[in-house]
Computed example of a mutant assay.
Amino acid sequence: MSLYWRILLLNAVVLVVAVVLLLGPVTVSTPVLPSEASILCTGLVAMIVANAVLLRIGLMPLQRLVRAMATADLLRPGSRPAVTGPREMAELISTFNTMLDRLEAERATSSARVLSAQEEERRRIARELHDEVGQTLTAVLLQLKHAADRAPAGLRDDLHQAQETTRDSLDEIRRIARRLRPGVLEELGLHSALRSLAAEFTAPGLSARTSISPGIPSHSDETELVLYRVAQEGLTNIARHAHATCAEVRLSRRPDGGIGLLIRDDGRGMDRAAEGAGIRGMRERALLIGAELTILPGPSGGTDVRLDVPMTAKEDS
């Protein structure tokens, strides 16, 4: 039973007992006159109703605080319950808001450290794939070519097939290394990186294209990396789960001078599915640069993933 109903019922019991005593032979005439009984019953109902209204008003800030606690999400910061009510409740709500501020700041700091370490680990793995595994496979290719040139005709076709398999594996390792460490982003910029990313995600039955509006302002390195990673994760989700035939990556200038990124597909949509680790990672990256990530149904089916980077967030990054 909620606190509201417990207090109300306790008060109602007290009032009922008081009225029963008044209706007894102590202070009321015996037998009780109908006018006296009606007055007492009316007073009893009025007191209970007034008590219920006052309790509802008094406990309303506590109910708002409970709803805020139940819906608090550190990946969607900014929502706070209003500090209202009696002094004790106002202090409780203010303390809760302060706690949320501290948790959001600590979450942002820890997320920045984790994502920075993650990017460093991606770079290390990409270097090892390119420098060690890539060079090893290149040496294997040369050895296979040397063996194929000297092998008898019966083995030559098998060695050529082994060469093709090794060459495909080398190309796949290079693609993985590029996804782990977007060198094109560092060398050619965000626009070229997004076009290259869309080209890499083109698969049988799925085509991806980019649309980049002119006049987009320059961004900080951190902002460009967040935009690239969000686009990468969005396209990965489309390729894995959306069952789409077409995907689009659109980069545009916001009316306030900020940046807008849209990843759209024509697949089956979210179907109210719970957000996975990929979407949570996108939200954490968005918080690092003060951006807002929204996921909505597309205009003609599918899903729209929008990342809006305000001008102030871009300058502060």
Rank of each mutant, 00 (worst) to 15 (best):
I7E: 14
L10E: 13
V13A: 15
L15Y: 14
L22K: 02
L22W: 07
V26F: 15
V28P: 02
V32T: 08
A46G: 03
V49E: 01
L55N: 03
R56L: 13
L59H: 00
P61I: 05
M69Y: 06
A70T: 02
A70D: 05
P81N: 12
P81E: 11
E88S: 11
L92E: 11
I93H: 07
F96T: 10
D101K: 08
R102Y: 06
A105P: 01
A105V: 10
S111I: 07
R113Y: 12
L115C: 07
L115I: 15
A117D: 15
Q118T: 05
E119K: 06
E119W: 12
R124Q: 10
R127Q: 15
L129C: 08
D131H: 12
L137R: 05
T138C: 05
L141M: 13
Q143H: 05
G154K: 08
R156N: 06
L159R: 01
A162T: 08
Q163A: 08
I176H: 07
R178K: 02
L180F: 01
R181C: 09
P182D: 12
E186K: 05
E187S: 14
R195I: 11
R195Q: 14
A199L: 09
G215I: 06
G215N: 10
I216T: 01
S220K: 05
D221I: 04
E222S: 13
L225V: 02
V230M: 11
E233L: 12
I238Q: 11
R240V: 09
H243G: 13
T245R: 11
T245Q: 08
C246T: 14
A247T: 05
A247Y: 05
L251K: 02
G257M: 10
G257R: 07
R268H: 13
G269F: 00
D271I: 04
A277S: 10
A277W: 03
G281T: 06
A286Y: 06
L288W: 09
I289G: 07
A291Y: 04
L293V: 09
L293K: 06
T294M: 04
G298D: 00
P299N: 13
G302P: 06
T303A: 04
D304L: 13
V309D: 13
T312D: 13
D316L: 08
